[in-house]
Simulated scan of single mutants.
Amino acid sequence: MRQSSAAFRLLAPLIAVGVLAVGCGPSPATPVSTPTRSAAPGPAQTAAAPPLRTAPAPSALDLPVGSLYKNPANNRNELVLADVRHTAVLIGDSQAMPKDSWPQQGIAALGYKLHVVGMGGTGFVAANGTTGNYIDALQRGDWILPYGDPPLIVIQGGGNDASQKATDAQITSNAERLLAALKKRYPGAALAMIGTLARGTDNGGGRRTEVDALLGRLAAKHGIPFVSTGDWLTRFNAVGDLQDGVHLKPSGHVKLGAVLARELTALGLTARPDSAAPAK
C-alpha cells in the first residue's frame, strides 16, 4: 500500500502535464473553422479586372483607309473607306467585276465613288468553287462590306443562276435572304437592282431573260428600283460588242454604261451633295 502511494506521488505530475497538453487542442469531433476574408481587397490582394469595353468607332480610332474594323454591332469585319458617305456599294458577277464595266460606269456617272464586291461565276444561287453565292459569301466574310453608312447599294446579276439552272424558287429564296441582310445591316441605304443582261425573249434570251423578269418581280414586291436588262443586247445593238457571247468588249461596256446611267438617273438615284441617301 505504501509502495502504491509512492508510485502515485511520482506519476501525478506527469499525468497533470498530459491533461493540460490534451486540453490545449481542439476536440477530434469539432471542425476547425477557416477565417473569413473581407470582401474589400486589402493591400496584398489584387482588385478584379474591369469588364471588356467595346472598341470605339474608327473615327475615334483614326484608323487608316483600307483597315479592317470588327464592327461590334454585327460582329463582322468591315473595310474603312475614305468617304463612305459618297460611296455606292455594287454586288455583282463577272459583268460587274472588270474595272470600268458597264455597271461600274453607270453608277459612277451618277456621282458616286464605288466599292465593288463579287466574283465571276457567282449569283443569287450560283457559286464558283472559290466563293459562295452572294448571300453566303457575304455572311461568311468572303467579301468585305464597308464600315459606316453608304447611301446606295446596287445588286446586279442572275446570268450564272440561269446557266447553272437554278430554279425560280431557289433564286427567290436567296434573293430574299440577301435583301433582308442588307436592309438590316444598312438601314439608311437605298437599294437598287440591275437584272440579267440578255438578248430578249424574241431573240434567244432564253433563261437569262426569264431570270431578269423574275428579279424585276421580286424588286417590285419590295419597292426597290429595278433596271431590266433582259433585252439590252439587241435593243441597244450591243450583240456586236460581245467578246465571247456573254461578256462585253470595252466598246460594249461604254455603250451600256451610258444607258445604265440614264436609267438610274430616271429612277432618282443620282448622288446628292449633302450625302443623303437617294429617295427609296
Rank of each mutant, 00 (worst) to 15 (best):
H247M: 12
D93G: 05
K99P: 05
L20V: 06
G148A: 01
F8Q: 08
K183A: 06
R177Q: 15
G141I: 15
C24D: 09
Q45G: 11
N203F: 01
T167N: 02
V125F: 00
A6M: 05
G206V: 02
G230H: 02
N74Q: 10
G252C: 09
V259D: 05
K113H: 14
L110C: 08
S4L: 14
P58V: 07
P51S: 06
L68P: 00
S33V: 03
L260V: 06
A127Y: 05
A189W: 04
I135C: 04
A29G: 12
G66K: 08
A258M: 08
G204R: 06
N203D: 03
G141E: 13
L20N: 00
S228A: 07
E78R: 13
H222N: 09
N160K: 06
K165T: 04
R207W: 00
V117R: 13
T265W: 07
P43E: 09
R140P: 10
T209R: 01
Q170V: 01
P43G: 12
T54H: 00
A108W: 01
R207Q: 00
G111V: 15
S275W: 06
G240R: 01
A169R: 03
L178H: 03
A169N: 07
S59V: 10
G121R: 05
Y147G: 00
E176D: 13
P150K: 14
H247R: 08
L242S: 13
P41F: 09
Q104K: 12
G129I: 07
V254S: 14
L11Y: 11
K221T: 00
A219E: 08
P151V: 12
G200W: 02
A82E: 10
A60Y: 06
A238C: 07
N133T: 01
I153F: 15
P50N: 04
T131G: 12
G25F: 04
L14N: 08
Q105L: 14
T167R: 01
N75D: 14
V259K: 13
R262Y: 05
S59Y: 13
P72F: 02
K183G: 11
S163A: 09
Q243A: 09
A82K: 08
E176Y: 06
A266S: 13
G240N: 02
G252R: 14
Q105P: 12
S173F: 04
Q139Y: 02
L145P: 14
G223W: 05
A6F: 07
Q243M: 06
A40S: 12
T87W: 06
P50Y: 08
P43T: 12
D83H: 06
G66I: 13
T270G: 15
D212T: 07
G158F: 00
G205V: 15
T167Q: 00
A16D: 00
P51Y: 01
Q156E: 12
A12D: 11
H222D: 13
A198P: 02
F8C: 02
L214N: 12
W232M: 07
Y147I: 04
